[in-house]
Structure formats: C-alpha cells, structure tokens
Design a protein around this nucleic acid. Structure first.
Lengths: 329, 329
DNA sequence: GTGAAAGCGCTAACAA
DNA sequence: TTGTTAGCGCTTTCAC
C-alpha cells in the first residue's frame, strides 16, 4: 500500500507541501479551516511523518544506542528495562546491540550506532575489549557516552557502576560480625576490574579482624563454582562461610551445598552479591547485598540526559547497595 | 566536532560528490587511483555514511521493531537475545519498545515503529490489548508483522508460539507413566489463552487413565503458589505429583516444598514447563518440558525473513518442546 | 495565509 | 573516468 507523505496530502487538498507541514504542526499562520482539512485527511490516511527525513533535515535523532555483552541474564535485562522506560519517557528510542563479549562485534556495533547517528550511547564493555580507540572516536565525535557495569579504567569517560567497595564491605562485615573465621570467597573473571575491587575490598575488611582466614578463588562459570565447592567441602577442614561475588557463582555454590546435604546456615553460611531475583528463590533465602540492574539503569539514564544537555566533564557514579536479609547467615 | 559527509570528502579531494560515493562503493567505473585516495581520506576522517539519508533515498530501512510487555524476565530476554543475534547476522538493527502491558503504550510503540519505517515488526500482545485495529493498519501498510508468545486469536496474522498442546501432553504423560494418581496442577493467569490450552490438554490426557485425579489451581504469582502448596501439603491427604505451568509457579512450589522439608522426588514428584534456567538451578534438578524463549526467537525471525522476502499468507507456527530429564520424578 | 525554493546526505540515471 | 542533476520527505526562510 502507498506510503502517505506531505506531498500526497498536499496534492489531494490542492495545497503546497509547506502549508500542509505547517498545518500539521498547528502553525499560527495557517487558517483554522485549512488546519482542519489537513488534520482530517492526515488522520484518515494514517499519515505518520518520516523520521528519517526529519532526522536528516534537523540533524537530530531520537535514537539512543546500547551495547551490551548479552541481553539475557540476571542483570542486563533489568538494566535495559530501566533504560528503555526512561528513554520512552523522554522521547527517545532504544537501539540494542549485543557484543557477545566479542571485541569485533563490539566494534561493529559501535559502527552501527555511529551510522545511525545515535544521540547517545550506553556501553558495557566486552570482556575482550583490548583498545579504547573506537570509543575515543565516539567521544571526539561529541556523542554522549555512558559506560555501565564493565567500565573502562581510564578516568576520561562517564561511568556508572555498582558501588563495589561499599557492597563488598557490607558483605564482609556481615560475615565478620557472625564470627566466621574460615571464609571461602569466590570471585568471577580474574581480569575484570569489578572482580579486583570486590576481592581487594573484601579481603581488606577481613584482614582487620584477628584470626580470620580468607580463601580466595576465581570461577568463571557456575559449573566451575559448583565443582570447586564440591572439592573443598569433601575435605576435612571446611570453611564456615562462603561469599559469592555474583549470581552466577551463587548458583553453582548452592547446588553443590545442597547436593552435599550441607545445612545452610548451620553448617555453612552464605552471603552473596546479587541482582535480587535468585537469592529469594533459594531455600533458605540467601542474604545478599543488592546490586540492582534496574537502579543502575536509572542512574545511567540520568547521566545520559545530563550529557545530552551539554554537561561537561566525566562523571564516575555509583549506585548505593543495600543489604537484603535472608536466612543464610 | 565536524561530522564528515561525502560533500566534505569531495571538497578536500577536489572531486564530485558522486565520484566519492562511487569510489567508496568500489564502483568499477572509478579509477584505482581515485578509489585509493578516497578510501584513505574517508578512513582517516572516520567517515560513516548517514543511515538516515540512505534510508530516505532508498526507501529501505534496516530497522526492525520489537514490542514486548517487558524486557526482563525468564522468557522475553532470551527471546530478544535470539532475535538480536539473528538481526545482526542479517544486517538488521533491533528497536525494542516495552508496552508494560499497557494498551496505550502499546499503541504509542506501534506509532514509533511506523514513524521509523521499520522493515518488520515483532509483537507480543499486552494483556490489555482490546482492539487489533492498529495492527490491522500495520498489515495494510505492508509491514511484515510477526506475533510471538501472546498472539491474537484472529487467524489472519503471522504467529509463532510455544506448542502448548504438545508440551502439556509431554508433561501429563510423564506423570501418568510414573503411576501418579493424585496430581496437583497449578496454572497461571486464568484468562490467558495459554493457560486455557495448557489446562485443557493436561486434563484431557490425565482423564484417559483410570483413577487419576487432578486438582487444578490457578495462581497469578510465585507467592500465591507458595501459599497454596503450603496449605495443601499440611493436610493429611497429599498429592504425589505437582505440575507447574511456568517458572513463576515453579519457584513458589519449590520454596514451599523445601520449607516443609518434603523430599523431591520420593515424597512428591515435580514436573514443570520452563525456559530452562530455573529447573537446573534447583536441587534436585527439576524435570521439565522446555519452552525456550531463545528457540522461539529463532523461529520468529525465520518467519520474519520469509515475510520480508515476500512470503504470502499467514503462518501459525509452534516451537517443538522437548523433555529435559532432571531428578524430580 | 500560502507558496516557492533550498537543503539535510545520499544514490543513480544521464551526460560528457 | 568523472561530473551534473534530480529526488527521497521534511522544515524553514523568504517572497507574495
């Protein structure tokens, strides 16, 4: 079926294109009669302005890009949900690209965003990003850029992330307060900065209390965590508490513990950092430090709007974590 | 910073815009020397073609719209993930809009898609959609339209959904085969068509075997299911098997059962329908009929491509379910 | 109160 | 081998 344009409407009504354009925008110059005629025809023909044409002419665009390793999961989906909600409220539309944690796909996604002349760009770095060059170019092109979750180490970018320091402190203090001395702390991918921060903070707090021994481990998957716990808990000397840096690790840990029929919290206490969905699904409910994707999404969007409105400088923001008390410690 | 256009490149090189355009596309007419010069400059200036201009001129668009109640959850996020992956492979970009199960927001999203001249549109109906008029218009505008999960009842649309009939049969047969006679079957929102289908099929199968008694219940949340199970399992006469229509229900059921320290599968068997994430996280792993969002996404995209390529008629497709054997029955 | 014309960035038919 | 021109749909300045 024919696509309706201003031209088409102008032909039908015997008006010029510019008159139709102005009538549709209720421009004061146009007579009421003309306005009515134009609006009525436009409605009956289901006219919708062509955004491509508008963007081209105005050099403005209501598209906002978002590059993320993967959409599905415990954290990013709620982050994206928050961002979409805010975008809608502010008249923007979201373009989502998955990098699949692949540097090449990430670069490709970046290119797509640039070609689409996005007004702003949210990026969660892939684990394999080697160079920030491409992002530097985005900045140079004056495209507001807000990194979230996996953010670059360089200071000259806008970043929003979980307050890993506070969150880790909360978790460590929780465990220390309950007098645990033998702690198994399991962390994710060794190379990620969030891993480093969480590990360092957690250990720093623990080291302040006498006799506390922390056994730090890295696991890059649920299954690895599961296997690790299985091994450790079939030994004679068992930790009395486990700290899980993420939902992914928590899954593996809980599976092993349940399989070994070890009682939580009597035989082992568990404290996790989590988006919140998982801990409440487990019996007993796991005590965790909330690291909400949704909250982070709101914060990220807030910063984005500031950038779009011309804010200078580079913000480095954090969401505040809260402890959600379950029955696992 | 200045945005680079063909015009800009042509000025620097003293060439015409069209020559630059052709050189960048490696048009055979253009001399190797010119091509090289153009490419080099374009690269060094980080030229990216303006998609808006291309779309406007070509009347083609690589945007595909997707309207969904909410991005986050067990099912839609993996659906979207699949669709994005396929879009990328095929040179399309995904625009995601949340309806929030609100009819007005759904209409608004539809409008945005039309204004953006999307090449195709995926829609999961909101629970509050009253009229299909707006979608009819999309069809009339020859925009390929593929409904998924919550699909309209009218036959004249492309639809892809979980094969609820087969999936429910699988689940029922699994339970029957294990000689269970007292079955508690818990379903979701009573008004949804998927609920009706699943309930009817499940009961139909069960009714074929002598002495099997099914206790059908509706629960619209995890907590409701949890409470329900708690009540039922504190009575004297307990069911020997529970069927859970969805992940949401499964969560509540398992929590209650674990709280009551009832052994799975010795004291009660559990069979669920699930996207697959949850059942493997529970100990013992829950046997379930897989209703994969990812698979459905692949199927939906396949149909979309057919439509884009001009396929006639309206497909009504279903993903095939498979039984994933755990240790809960 | 309305129209003509230019131009956003790009491509392609036609000319040279 | 390269340039000129028109036009995609829209907005806006300037003219009438």
């Amino acid at each position: 079926m024919e696509v309706i344009t201003l031209k088409r409407i102008s032909q039908v009504l015997g008006l010029s294109i510019s008159t139709v354009s102005r009538a549709l925008k209720n421009h004061p110059d146009i007579s009421q009669n003309t306005k009515t005629r134009v609006h009525e025809l436009a409605n009956s023909l289901d006219y919708e302005p062509n955004i491509n044409a508008i963007s081209l002419r105005s050099k403005k665009n209501n598209l906002i890009g978002l590059i993320v390793p993967t959409i599905s999961g415990f954290f990013y989906d709620s982050f994206i949900s928050a961002v979409e909600t805010e975008c809608r409220k502010n008249g923007y539309t979201l373009m989502i690209l998955q990098s699949g944690n692949d540097a090449e796909q990430e670069t490709e996604s970046l290119k797509i965003c640039r070609q689409n002349r996005v007004t702003g760009l949210f990026v969660c770095l892939s684990t394999k990003t080697k160079s920030m060059d491409a992002f530097m170019k985005v900045k140079d092109a004056d495209i507001p850029l807000v990194f979230f979750d996996k953010v670059p180490t360089e200071p000259n970018y806008n970043k929003v992330s979980i307050d890993d320091v506070t969150a880790s402190k909360f978790a460590a203090n929780l465990i220390i307060k309950k007098k645990h001395k033998e702690i198994l702390a399991i962390f994710g991918n060794e190379n990620l900065s969030i891993t480093k921060t969480r590990l360092n903070t957690f250990n720093e707090i623990c080291s302040k209390t006498k006799d506390v021994v922390v056994d730090n481990k890295y696991c890059s998957s649920s299954d690895e965590a599961r296997e690790l716990v299985r091994k450790i808990f079939t030994k004679k000397k068992k930790p009395t508490a486990i700290f899980c840096m993420s939902d992914e690790i928590l899954i593996g840990v809980v599976k092993s513990i349940q399989e070994l029929k070890i009682n939580i919290p009597n035989e082992v206490a568990i404290v996790a950092m989590s988006d919140g969905m998982l801990p409440t699904m487990i019996t007993p409910e796991i005590t965790y430090v909330e690291t909400s994707g949704y909250k982070l999404g709101l914060l990220a969007f807030e910063q984005m709007i500031k950038c779009i409105n011309g804010a200078e400088g580079n913000a480095n923001l954090f969401t505040t974590s809260t402890i959600v008390t379950g029955k696992s410690i």
